[in-house]
């Protein structure tokens, strides 16, 4: 009996703590909130921008969630978020919102550093991904991203890939693609990742004779690139969101873009 009372008491205490915790959390709901959703390709960059901005303006809280470019556009259209993110330009049927470019991203075709191939053409890449045709007799297999990924959308659009050969792995994260390529010491597998994510564990191939680099994307000679846009209703922006967008486009914001390996719009 005593024990029962004890347990009831402790349960009550736990509940009370939980309650106050929740109440306290609700109470401290001050400051301004900015919500953003959309492309998971833009998301890491947006999170860093948001982090820097929050550091400068401690009263602002920014929530960045994923969902993909399509979700970014529809959320912006429905006013569910302050603005959406898309790693592509607006389609014709996506009306009522505008796209505002904040950065440019290159897509790198990556292989293991042991791989002897240095340059590929569009036709070679297309044949590899569609029919498993070996590139220069060396690269015999490829990895794709999952359906819905912004990187995959852009890659398939730029290379004009319409189908994938049977049994191609579809990986749901950049990190895993990179790890897979880095582990492929035979150097016979190709994948694609954002140029900003390339590091020494993988080798980025030249495309149509042009080295994959920030400069070449900027001067428009490296053709595998796409725009990072934010999507919003022209007259629907809150002051807080407007200020944040101004920050993104400012020199300070664009410095983060450059530091992360993306290409600035300035």
């Amino acid at each position: 009996m005593k024990k029962f009372v004890k347990v009831v008491m402790s349960a009550a205490v736990v509940a009370a703590i939980g309650g106050t915790m929740a109440a306290g959390l609700t109470a401290c709901n001050g400051g301004e909130e900015i919500t953003i959703s959309g492309s998971t390709s833009v998301q890491p960059l947006m999170e860093l921008l948001a982090g820097k901005y929050e550091e400068l303006h401690s009263d602002v809280s920014i929530t960045v969630s994923g969902g993909g470019s399509g979700v970014g556009v529809t959320d912006a259209q429905q006013g569910k978020v302050d603005f959406g993110m898309a790693s592509r330009d607006l389609k014709d049927d996506e009306t009522g919102v505008v796209a505002d470019k904040i950065a440019i991203d290159g897509i790198a075709l990556v292989v293991h550093p042991n791989c002897t191939v240095t340059n590929v053409t569009k036709a070679e890449v297309k044949a590899l991904y569609e029919d498993k045709t070996a590139i220069q007799g060396v690269i015999t297999q490829a990895e794709a991203r999952e359906d819905g990924s912004g990187t995959r959308d852009a890659f398939e659009e730029l290379i004009e890939v319409t189908k994938l050969y049977a049994n191609m792995p579809e990986i749901s994260s950049t990190g895993t693609v990179k790890a897979d390529i880095a582990a492929n010491t035979d150097g016979n597998m190709m994948g694609y990742i954002s140029l900003g994510s390339v590091d020494s564990t993988v080798k980025a191939l030249s495309y149509e004779g042009v080295v994959a680099s920030v400069e070449n994307v900027k001067n428009n000679t490296y053709k595998l690139s796409r725009n990072f846009n934010i999507i919003y209703k022209e007259d629907g922006l809150s002051d807080a969101a407007k200020a944040f967008i101004d920050f993104i486009k400012s020199e300070e914001g664009q410095k983060i873009v450059t530091d992360e390996g993306y290409i600035t719009i300035l």
Binding site: E146, L164, A166, N167, M168, P169, E170, I171, S172
Partner: peptide, 16 residues
């Protein structure tokens, strides 16, 4: 699994 939409015809083939 590897995420590819295909039948499990081998032990080391990506499937979903």
């Amino acid at each position: 699994l590897g995420g590819s939409v295909s039948y499990p015809t081998g032990l080391f083939l990506p499937i979903r």
